[in-house]
Amino acid sequence: MGRYAVKRLIQGVITVWFIATATFFAMHAVPGDPLSGDKALTEKIRANLEAKYGLDQPLMTQYAIYLGNIAQGDFGISFTQENREVNDIIREHFPVSATLGILAIVFAGLGGVLWGALTAIYRNRLPDTIIMFLVILGISVPSFVIAALGQLSLVNINEWTGVSILPVGGWGTVWHMIVPSMVLGLGTMAYLTRLMRSSMLEIINSDFVRTAKSKGVPPTQIFTRHQLRNAILPVITVLGPSIATITTGGFVVEIIFAIPGLGRYFVQAVQQLDYTVIMGTTVFYGAFLVFMVILVDLIYGLIDPRVRLE
């Protein structure tokens, strides 16, 4: 186990190096440059700016400096926010994105399990039909449409009731988090519901459940001990990869709900060709995801005896 963890960590570090390299060279292959502004620059000023950001060095030197800085956890200074460090930007905005992401996953996970179990129990009856219809909507409607509709309905509800039940956007309190994270988690929730439903159905008809029933085990116990527990396993397995989709998929929600998350910054930085912010964010996200996946794998190994870590 220990050796396995070390091996995975080393692999993780190499992967992060790969991500950093890919980002660096992709970024420098982009036509256009971050220094151009609305007003044309004279040669002299441009040269000064290039020197300031080290863009006057040969590419490989820049790469070496860049790797060196990353190793020390320094992503440099932003091009557009001239006096801010990328580290500051990440430190301030990542927690927001992470909060949103965690909540979305929790919503998706709990919701998926609940709805999935419910539909399986009430198979082919009204609750099943209604929930499965919603699930189909969740799977097939693009997230930005859902987000925009979500915000719109909030406005209408607030207008109709005359009180602001939930804020329409912004960030800061518990109330701000509810709708955006639900919207963000909806797609995953729909997916998990389907998964839970089918795994539940399989288990309802399985031998050990039948045995338990005939043995006279109380229904509540059958449900929780035998069915729910076993049916949840596949759901947990896909939760890990979902983290990646959700945390990086927050852009849309962040833009629409005016949430100061890192995703929104990234989109802005790309528009502005802010090299340092783009590279910093990508490498940071990449590293985050890599180590999250490793962590999740290790946790599985600990809690599920059927998973053997080589």
Binding site: I19, A22, F266
Partner: peptide, 21 residues
């Protein structure tokens, strides 16, 4: 292949879109 999988998909999608102007 593992390396490539590890690239954050949407971020790189956007990046590549800009690279292949």
């Amino acid at each position: 292949a593992d390396f490539v999988v590890a690239l954050p998909f949407l971020l790189f999608m956007i990046l590549f879109k800009v690279v292949f102007a």
